[in-house]
Design a protein around this nucleic acid. Structure first.
Lengths: 142, 142
DNA sequence: CTGTATGCAAAGGTTTTGCATCGGG
DNA sequence: CCCGATGCAAAACCTTTGCATACAG
């Protein structure tokens, strides 16, 4: 996988060390394809890679966020999920199955005249039903 | 304040009791004008109204959310803030002072063709600098 | 009166921290 | 070699829960 090399290089460039633990976390994020929480990453790696601790997972996630490889999602309450940034997209939280799925949006957002604030970034969180759950629903009603 | 009566009526209609604690929380939310967390509400009421507990605050917030008087905000990590819903608006988190300020947006959001999901609701969170902090910055540089 | 709401304290879940040790560059 | 990274366990933080009591309707 090429993305991995890019991340490694960026880590080096920013003065961060590349440790086996960090490599495992990066692999997991790239292979997994969804939006794991810190705990899911920890458990996912632990099985085939037991020498990882929670503090290392959190430390690495913070580092990966700082170099711009991942973004954190506050789409659910009281738990942060992490999103490997691969292409521009937003997210939908499925109220049926609880998964977070990628969604591509046409978003045209502009401040109304009186809002004199400076916007550096923004996040759009959708809530609804994902494709899989919609399919299951259709099958039921047939 | 008239809004208060409306909330009281809605509580009654939905079969919830109106207790002094709940009244105090509603007052605080209406008078305060910003977006307090559960803890801020608890502390804000406690001073002039000592007979309130954390569980009551959380219980009441859940009730107020259910009747549609407040909405929860996940704009910051690991802490939920509550927003008395008075008029349609979105929110900006000020990365300077940490406050959450109301912002009115023209938001035109549409799913791209391939996204076959069902959207029930969405949230837009802006991150940047609020008006007050922009002003302070300007004064400094002069 | 009746059942919901409250207060308290304890538990639950997630994230952070302190510190000694390890190991990547 | 050195300094940052790790692991462990404990702490911090926010929220929920269980249960006996209080009180709104």
């Amino acid at each position: 996988m090429d993305k991995k090399k890019i991340v490694f290089r960026r880590l080096k460039d920013e003065g961060f060390k590349i440790t086996p633990q960090r490599a495992a976390i990066i692999d997991f994020l790239l292979d997994n394809g969804n939006h794991p929480s810190a705990e899911e990453i920890y458990k996912g790696i632990k099985t085939e890679y037991p020498m990882v601790s929670f503090s290392t997972v959190y430390n690495t996630l913070r580092v990966l966020e700082r170099i711009g490889f991942i973004k954190s999602l506050n789409i659910t309450e009281n738990r942060v999920n992490f999103d490997p940034e691969t292409y521009p997209h937003h997210h939908l939280y499925c109220e049926r199955c609880g998964r977070i799925v990628d969604v591509q949006l046409d978003a045209d957002i502009s401040l109304l005249k009186n809002n004199t604030v400076k916007v550096n970034s923004y996040r759009i969180y959708l809530y609804g039903i994902c494709l899989d759950c919609l399919r299951k629903e259709r099958e039921k009603t047939v």
